[in-house]
Design a protein around this nucleic acid. Structure first.
Lengths: 229, 229
DNA sequence: ATTACTATCTCACGAGTAC
DNA sequence: TGTACTCGTGAGATAGTAA
């Protein structure tokens, strides 16, 4: 944590902006006050405090006062800057879901086996999924929100299609890893009868077997995403 | 000026660092308090204020609370960031001197005409200077400091030499522009009898004539320098 | 015009505590 | 455990003013 007082940050930034890093810059406390949206008195105090903190130097020639930022002032500012920089640079490399396995498997199997989907899965995911989806009831609102967030990320699109009877909606696939053990894909469906708190997973093999999990078990799903710039 | 309160900057930065930009992150006010070196109460208030400012959203699931930074929060943070960024990026492209022309011209002429200097001037500056230097009395301490600052920048070096009688010191030349009118060079001498408050200028032609200035006139000298990274 | 002192006010913070 | 209230203290701000 930088030792620069937070309320001095913008004042020091203003001095930098005025070019006071490398030369003594003539400045009045009232103009500085206006720049930082504070009173003349506040600006005066800031300068006094920055000076005694060793962040700036002042030169007086009679009435006029000039200010220059010291190396320490520069260092302190850089510290703050890099804290903010690294903060803003943070972007997720994955989105995590936690929940409980619920029944499922029945209806999903029907869809997975439809040729219109199966062919695309094979082509785009590299495998024909085990016939059936694993349904997971999300534990918390937080994960329901995460599901919405995930929706904004690019996915592998499985297109919808029609047969004689009806039309089938698209499916968005997000390759993921369940319990850090099994490769799977989280799927978002164009049309679903599930509520928001349920997500579905598909996999090459039977996930329940592979993870030795059964209905009621806790499961965590780790979905890698490309950081948004 | 950003509307984010300054004391919230580090708190928001901490939330960013925890990854709260893209997902709801579970966080307790006491852990947040520790992170920002404040009390649990302060952290709680910061969150309340950031929330009502529209910078964050909170989700409660019973006991647990999760926080996510909104687009506005991101925007506000970015504003602060770019203020600091542009401030720190500021570096001088020139150093300015202001002063009064004083006599001079006499002694300087002698040195300028010495072959040991004249040859180097011709080779390194591209011209043989008008025989004589223009002496400028700096107006303020600020400019005396600027002179010291200038000394740290790379210059065109005119080497010292010896003849039968004595040795002559080096001369550092900084190409400059006087009154935004005449190309000149500010010179710093290894040995000088002048005090700190006087600088000397050389030029291809007679500066006084070119600028129509005479002893006692105000003059400003603009010395371009390469920004320090 | 300046800077910076004193007095006053506001509000940020921490302590204690209810829920 | 949590969050967030009230309240007291003091830092940080402004107003007025001296130099």
């Amino acid at each position: 944590m930088p030792e620069l007082k937070v309320q001095h940050i913008l004042t020091l930034a203003e001095l930098f902006a005025k070019g006071a890093r490398y030369n003594f810059i003539p400045i009045t406390t009232s103009s500085l006050g206006k720049s930082i949206c504070k009173s003349q008195q506040a600006a005066s105090k800031h300068l006094l405090e920055l000076e005694s903190a060793g962040c700036i130097e002042r030169l007086r020639s009679g009435q006029k006062v000039s200010v220059r930022i010291t190396t320490k002032g520069h260092t302190e500012m850089s510290k703050i800057f890099s804290v903010l920089k690294s903060s803003l640079a943070t972007s997720p490399s994955f989105i995590e879901f936690k929940g409980t396995i619920i029944s499922g498997m029945g209806e999903g199997a029907y869809y997975m086996s439809l040729k219109g989907y199966a062919k695309q899965f094979k082509a785009k995911l590299g495998y024909a999924p085990f016939p059936g989806t694993l349904n997971v009831k999300l534990k918390d609102k937080e994960f329901i929100e995460a599901k919405r967030a995930l929706d904004a990320y690019p996915a592998i699109m499985i297109n919808g299609f029609s047969d004689d009877k009806r039309t089938y909606g698209w499916v968005k696939c997000y390759p993921a890893r369940a319990n850090n053990l099994v490769d799977t894909a989280l799927i978002l469906l164009e049309r679903t009868h599930h509520d928001d708190s349920i997500i579905e997973l598909i996999s090459k093999d039977n996930i329940k077997k592979a993870t030795r999990l059964s209905t009621g078990s806790q499961i965590s799903i780790h979905v890698p995403v490309k950081p948004i710039s």
